[in-house]
Design a protein around this nucleic acid. Structure first.
Lengths: 182, 182
DNA sequence: ACCTGAACACCGTTCAAGT
DNA sequence: ACCTGAACACCGTTCAAGT
């Protein structure tokens, strides 16, 4: 049998799997090529650069976020985005670091926009930025803890994290929660 | 005259200057060593790793943030943190990526905490996470634009960015702004 | 259409040894 | 106390050439 051939999709899927296994710092083009049983240069037939590859990876990480639809509560949408980012190691960092390059794939922001009471794009963008910053920090703390490094909080970090996340989402949700003051 | 000697402080200052000049992706230990007229291995007498060096750089980036004090309006504190991050190229990414390692230097969060009406540490942390996510995204867009890449917004990104930042800060500030409905 | 082989210009880090 | 020299095990990317 001839050696396997690949397309953009299979490369991205393998990259995603490798990301989850070794983390972003160790996700190299050479290592990915080895995983695909291919020379490193072969990757450059499918993608013009590592950045472009990572942008596709980022899109795929966010792809499970439900489509924009009115009626979904804001915390549900925010939680779905956070869960998508958390479902791969260093997921938030990958999305944050390739965000500027990705033209489409603003589905996540649009989903937040649809969940907000007013048509407030600034608030939707700000909430998305909060989710990204929050989740990147959380994933870093998770990694630092696994390395055995001393983290700021002695206690389990995920519990405190959940409270902080709720506080952030609630800040953006007051607009819809209030509306009729007493 | 003998070649110059260095200590942690002078290394960090040079690193900060080099960061601003070339950006985080090109801030290598080898390049920093060359800037200091020193062999790369010399840096490992002062810092045990690049990560540890970057953590010191991150602390220095945030050092202009005013000390925690009651009475300062929340938007002023938030703006000061954003300005500190923006004053060096890729400043937000440096802080975000070393955050988990830095034990002290929670001055920024404490300043936010002091500016909040209640003693709400979760809200302070969430707001800090928003500022970091927001500023990292902004700095990336700035870089993508300087490279000539096509960004999502056709128009000037900083104007939209200011509105998004204000929307985020306001979300956390409603608690203090409301209080007396109507 | 998809990949190999070889090369170029880099990385972070360690460690014995020097002054 | 601070640094050199040399080495180790890596990087991303390009490009001619193969099938």
């Amino acid at each position: 049998m001839p050696p396997e051939r690949h397309d953009r999709d299979s490369v991205v899927r393998t990259a995603l799997h490798l990301l989850d296994e070794v983390g972003l710092p160790d996700l190299s083009m050479r290592r990915l090529a080895a995983e695909l049983d291919v020379q490193p240069s072969a990757l450059y037939w499918h993608f013009s650069s590592k950045q472009e590859l990572l942008a596709s990876v980022a899109d795929r990480i966010l792809s499970p976020v439900p489509e924009p639809a009115p009626g979904i509560p804001l915390p549900a949408v925010a939680g779905a985005i956070r869960d998508a980012l958390l479902s791969y190691r260093d997921g938030a960092e990958v999305v944050l670091s390739t965000y500027a390059l990705r033209l489409g794939a603003h589905r996540a922001q649009d989903a937040l926009l649809a969940a907000l009471p007013q048509d407030d794009r600034s608030a939707a963008d700000a909430l998305f930025e909060f989710i990204l910053g929050h989740t990147m920090l959380l994933q870093q703390r998770m990694h630092a803890q696994s390395i055995g490094a001393v983290t700021a909080d002695a206690a389990d970090p995920t519990e405190h994290s959940d409270r902080v996340f709720d506080a952030g989402v609630r800040a953006f949700d007051v607009l819809s929660a209030q509306g009729r003051p007493s």
